[in-house]
Every structure is written in C-alpha cells, then in structure tokens.
Write a protein that binds this DNA or RNA. Structure first.
Length: 297
DNA sequence: TTCCAGGGGTAGA
DNA sequence: TCTACCCATGGA
C-alpha cells in the first residue's frame, strides 16, 4: 500500500530528517541506503503498520514523497487516511515557513543553512509522544534519552506483527497500565517515571486533552501555561513543545544552548540568562529556528 | 568520589 | 519572583 504526499518547495527531506534528534528516537529510524524515514505506527483501530517515507520526485513548485505502508492485512481507506494525516503532521508538510525564509534571507550565514528548504523539524504523531520524549531529554545526556525511549517502546509498545522486534510508541493507556516498578527498574526512567506515568493516566482517563492542543488557536502564552501544568514540564520542556506545536517565538534554554551561545557570542564568559536569550531577539516569531540553525552551523 | 548531562518540583523567603 | 535543595541514572 502507498500514500502520496506533496509539499511546497523549498524542501530538503533528508536534511530535514537529520536536523532534529527525534529521527534517532524509537520508533523512528533513518534508513541510509534508501534515504528513507522508517516509522512504526499504531492506528486508532489498534493495528500496527510499518511505514517508509522517501522522496520520489519534484515539480516546479513542489516536492513529492511516497510512503510505503506494510501491515498484517490490507488497511482500510480510513486507516490509510490516518497514516497520511500522521505523516503530514510529523513532517510539518502543512506548516507555513514563508515569513521565516524571507527573514532568514536577510542573514547570509543563516540563509546559507536554511535556504534550500530546512526548518520542518521532525515531530511525533501525537503530542503525548512528544511530551514523553521531551521529559526524557531533561537533566540527562542524549545517549540516555535514546535508551529510555527505546526501552519504553520495547517494553510497552505494540509489536509490528511481521517483525515483533519493531514496536510502536506506547499509547497513554499502555503507559498508565505499566507497573511503576517496571518503569523504574527496566525502563530506567529515574525520577521521570512517576511524571510520565501520571501524564499517561491523565490522558488515558480523559482528564487531560493533550491532542486537542495540536490544532488549538490559543495564543502561545496560554498553550505554555497548559503545558507547564504537566508535572515534569518546566520552561525548557514547554518551549520545546511549543516548537513542536509550531510556535517558534520562545527559546528552550538548556545546557547545550548555554554553552553554544556563551562560546559564540560572549567570549566564553557566561552571561545572565536574560542577556543570553536576547541574542535572538531580532528573530521575533522565529527565534527557536534561528537558534536551532545557529547551533547546527 | 564527585560532578553533571539538551531540568524541574518544592519549600521558604 | 528568587533561591537552595533534592531528585534517579550513568558516564567522565
């Protein structure tokens, strides 16, 4: 089965996949030989599919992608539509970057980085998955983050029938049903375990509508307030998640940003946070992306 | 041993 | 609003 996807140019698919660490987190995987994003998805029907996305061509104004879908049995039109919608969200194919590009065009160094179509940073199909992954990046190393997410998927996610070693990201109900001891001793989430389990419970019982925030017209400040009401989500995580929701006006200040900005703009002398953040003031609504590609430069 | 990683919760001022 | 202190885990 196949799903066709179209996105306005400029768009550099392979580079965009590489640009955000989520590509290294289960159940995502980059397949070098075929230059494809591989992803295991559990659909609302409960069925699990293996999806491979790659570029097939381009026209004057658009890039064309194709997703090959494999599942135990053939999927319904509704299920394929869900996969298409998941992929459009994950790759941000419907986000508008024109004003970012026109601003970036005024900065030769940044333009050199993003002009060919970067900026559509990878995200997860559900906000639940992005919140959990983001909490797993706090106060730890990237290496441990990769391990925590991998074990969450392996211990709790539903298997892809044809290759049970591949699993989908666990649903809120699956995480909520997990024994706290499993999250602690096997998944090794550390003190994050109770936060993640509590969130899963809130979402699974309908107490918290996370996915409703995805297409919510609320201003960023209000979204931030709701995100910060999740235990384990502070300023850094909330700003990372605002980025996931398509709001780039807030910077996620972490040890990495601190060290980059201190080195690059303050001669190695650590500035106050206010001063540090002010470096990107002129980018207004696009601060996050301006910083992100400054980091990758 | 101690420190600290792509921080955050809590209590006390 | 700001500050100290605590929090699991694992590598340096």
């Amino acid at each position: 089965m196949r799903v066709e996807l179209r996105v306005d140019k400029p768009y550099d698919f392979a580079q965009s996949m590489e640009d955000y660490g989520w590509i290294s987190l289960a159940p995502c995987r980059w397949v070098e030989e075929s230059q494809a994003l591989e992803h295991v998805q559990q659909l609302s029907s409960g069925r699990v599919a293996l999806v491979q996305v790659r570029v097939t061509g381009e026209s004057d104004s658009a890039a064309h992608l194709e997703a090959r879908v494999e599942a135990a049995a053939s999927l319904s039109a509704v299920e394929l539509a869900e996969i298409e919608s998941n992929l459009r969200w994950m790759l941000r194919l419907d986000e508008e970057f024109a004003s970012f590009y026109s601003l970036a065009a005024g900065d030769p160094l940044l333009w050199q980085q993003v002009g060919n179509g970067r900026g559509r940073l990878l995200r997860s199909p559900s906000l639940f998955e992005d919140v959990v992954k983001t909490i797993c990046t706090t106060n730890t190393t990237w290496r441990q983050t990769v391990g925590m997410v991998e074990r969450l998927v392996q211990f709790l996610g539903s298997p892809y029938p044809a290759d049970p070693g591949r699993r989908a990201f666990p649903t809120p109900a699956q995480v909520a049903a997990a024994e706290p001891e499993l999250l602690q001793k096997e998944v090794r989430l550390g003190y994050r375990g109770p936060y993640i389990r509590q969130l899963a419970e809130e979402v699974a019982t309908g107490q918290r509508d996370l996915e409703g925030l995805k297409c919510n017209p609320l201003p960023a400040a209000e979204l931030k307030k709701q995100l910060k009401s999740i235990k384990g989500v502070g300023d850094y995580a909330a700003h990372t998640l605002l980025m996931a929701l398509g709001h780039y006006s807030a910077l996620a200040l972490d040890s990495e940003m601190r060290s980059l900005v201190t080195r690059k703009y303050f001669n190695g002398q650590p500035p106050a946070d206010k001063e540090l953040l002010a470096v990107y003031d002129r980018w207004g609504e696009w601060k996050y992306l301006a910083y992100w590609f400054d980091l990758l430069t």
